[in-house]
Simulated assay, not measured.
Amino acid sequence: MRLSQLDQETIHATVAELFGADAVVHVFGSRVNDSARGGDIDLLVQSPEPVPDRRRKALQLVARLQLRLGDQPIDVLVLDPETARTPFHEEALRSGVRL
């Protein structure tokens, strides 16, 4: 995975801060491919509880991570019990790495 241990810990802590300690975060996409270069940070946040205003929470996570990790492209998907799973969610879960 092309994220430092410190970056991984920062992502995990920030997700817990915004979504709660029970939330799980997966990194997927190009950052899990050690031979790839560049690319944004793709995250899937899974919450066992419904997340009110998922879109706003995802944007808050992006903003906080950009402040903490540096200004870089970050994409966030939020999956909670009220989200209809799509093939994109399934692929992110299948190919992603849990932090």
Rank of each mutant, 00 (worst) to 15 (best):
M1W: 09
M1E: 10
R2A: 05
R2Y: 07
S4Y: 07
Q5Y: 11
Q5D: 14
D7F: 08
Q8R: 15
Q8D: 03
E9R: 14
T10L: 05
I11Y: 00
I11F: 00
I11A: 01
T14Y: 02
V15M: 02
V15A: 02
A16P: 00
A16R: 07
E17I: 05
E17W: 08
E17S: 11
L18A: 08
F19D: 00
F19K: 00
G20S: 06
A21M: 11
A23F: 02
A23D: 00
A23P: 02
V25P: 04
H26T: 12
V27W: 02
V27T: 07
F28S: 02
F28K: 01
S30W: 08
S30F: 09
S30R: 06
S30V: 07
S30K: 02
R31Y: 06
V32Y: 04
N33E: 15
D34M: 15
D34H: 13
D34W: 11
A36T: 04
A36C: 04
R37L: 12
R37V: 14
G39L: 04
G39N: 06
D40C: 07
D40V: 07
D42S: 09
L43E: 01
L44G: 02
V45S: 01
S47Q: 03
S47E: 01
P48N: 05
E49P: 03
V51W: 02
D53P: 06
R54N: 10
R54Y: 13
R54G: 10
R55K: 14
R55G: 15
R55Q: 15
R55E: 15
R56T: 15
K57V: 11
A58T: 09
L59S: 12
L59I: 12
Q60G: 11
R64N: 12
L65D: 04
L65M: 09
Q66M: 15
L69D: 00
G70C: 09
D71Y: 15
Q72H: 08
D75V: 10
V78C: 07
D80S: 03
E82R: 13
A84Q: 15
T86M: 09
P87H: 05
F88P: 06
H89V: 10
E90L: 15
E91H: 14
L93Q: 06
L93P: 05
L93V: 07
R94F: 10
R94Q: 12
V97D: 00
R98P: 03
L99R: 00
L99A: 03
